[in-house]
Structure formats: structure tokens, C-alpha cells
């Protein structure tokens, strides 16, 4: 009997995010996940100090 193919990393990620997807879909998403990771690698790391992306103005009109 052949060894079972290991589950792709995206399967674990999506299960943890609340998805229960068929194996065929997960296999399709495996390649896309690789492309996504390559894209995310182009982003710089986060920093601890305050920055515009996390600034909140309590006196803003909205």
C-alpha cells in the first residue's frame, strides 16, 4: 500500500481558519499558496513603534 501523500501546508492553515475544503481544492490551492508566499516575502518586516497604519484619531469626525 503506497504511503499517504502529506497534507499541503495550506490545508492546515485553512482548517485553523475554519474551512473544511475538499482534497482536490486544497491540492489546487497548494500551488497558489507557494505563489502567495513568494509575494509576501517581498514585504518588509513589521516594527514595534507606532506608525500610520495603526494610528487612531479619537477626535476624528467619523
Amino acid at each position: 500500500m503506497p504511503d499517504a501523500k502529506p497534507e499541503p501546508p495550506i490545508a492546515t492553515l485553512l482548517r485553523q481558519a475554519g474551512y473544511d475544503l475538499p482534497a482536490a481544492t486544497l491540492a489546487d490551492l497548494d500551488r497558489a499558496h507557494g505563489l502567495l508566499q513568494a509575494m509576501l516575502a517581498r514585504l518588509p518586516g513589521t516594527a514595534a513603534e507606532a506608525e500610520l497604519a495603526t494610528v487612531f484619531h479619537p477626535d476624528a469626525a467619523r
Binding site: 474551512y19 490551492l29 497558489a32 518588509p44 516594527a47 506608525e51 500610520l52
Partner: peptide, 23 residues
């Protein structure tokens, strides 16, 4: 569905890093 579900694999660090790089 197969594109947008990939958003579940983007962490808060990635999202904030993208917004920082955007600036």
C-alpha cells in the same frame, strides 16, 4: 473562492507590513 480564501493565509503582520510599505 479559490483566490479569496487565500486571504485566510495572510497574517496580521503581513497586512500591516503591506500597509507600511504602501506608505
Amino acid at each position: 473562492r479559490e483566490r479569496v480564501v487565500l486571504g485566510a493565509a495572510i497574517s496580521s503582520e503581513h497586512y500591516l507590513a503591506a500597509q507600511r510599505r504602501r506608505r
